[in-house]
Simulated assay, not measured.
Amino acid sequence: MRTRPVLIYDGDCAFCTSSVTFAERHIRPRCEVTPWQFADLNSLGTTRERAEHELLWITPAGVTHGGAQAVAKLLLNAGRRWAVLGALLSLPPLRWIAHGVYRLVANNRERMPGGTPACALPADGRPRTQASSPPTAH
């Protein structure tokens, strides 16, 4: 049984790696940090598809929080002033706003500072637009 939470991120994404490095240096959460590419996702109770889609925070009990709520849990875990921000991000309406901002950043992470084309979500992980939808038969 794990005794510490696990933070799972996309190790192939320069933006994600830079963000996690910042968190480790400045926020200092008390958790294990690992890229999904090197994690035993099955034993952590999650899937590759979910790990490709969003940052994951997995509690020692096996509860998984994704996206903005993974960030909120990371901040809560760090304590000090970060815990206040984590608590705020857990409450509506800030929770909803945080989710929207997280999705906007995640869906465009290859365009973020430090991002590279390798940061782009797989095509099946991106929201569909009219331009990317397959043609329909008439």
Rank of each mutant, 00 (worst) to 15 (best):
A83L: 03
R28D: 02
L55P: 07
F22G: 00
N107M: 08
H26E: 05
P135I: 02
T59K: 06
G62C: 09
G67Y: 12
T17Q: 02
P60E: 04
R128N: 03
W36A: 00
I58M: 03
F38A: 00
W36Y: 15
R50K: 15
R2L: 07
L7C: 09
G45L: 10
E52G: 01
N107H: 15
I97W: 13
A68F: 11
P134I: 04
M112W: 11
P60L: 02
A68L: 08
I97P: 01
Q37K: 01
A87L: 13
N77I: 05
I58T: 06
T59I: 07
A23F: 12
A72K: 10
Q37H: 05
T17E: 01
S43D: 09
G67C: 11
A137I: 10
G66W: 13
L44Y: 06
R4H: 10
T47P: 03
R4T: 11
R128Q: 14
A61Y: 04
A70M: 13
I27E: 13
S133A: 08
R109H: 04
E49C: 01
G125D: 06
V63S: 11
T3D: 12
W57Q: 12
C119Q: 05
P92T: 09
R81Y: 13
P117H: 02
A72P: 12
I8L: 15
P60I: 02
I27Q: 12
G79Y: 15
L44A: 05
A137P: 07
P113D: 04
G11N: 07
I58Q: 06
H53M: 12
K73C: 15
V71G: 03
G114F: 07
T129N: 00
A39D: 05
H26W: 15
G86L: 09
L94V: 04
P5L: 09
V105D: 06
L91M: 11
L104M: 10
E24V: 06
A118M: 06
P93I: 06
A72E: 10
A98E: 15
S132M: 00
D12H: 08
S43P: 01
I8M: 09
T116C: 07
A131K: 13
L44P: 03
L76I: 14
A14N: 14
H99V: 02
A14K: 05
A68I: 08
H53W: 07
G86T: 08
T21S: 08
E24M: 14
G67M: 12
S133T: 07
H53N: 13
S19F: 02
E52S: 04
D12G: 01
T129H: 06
Y9C: 03
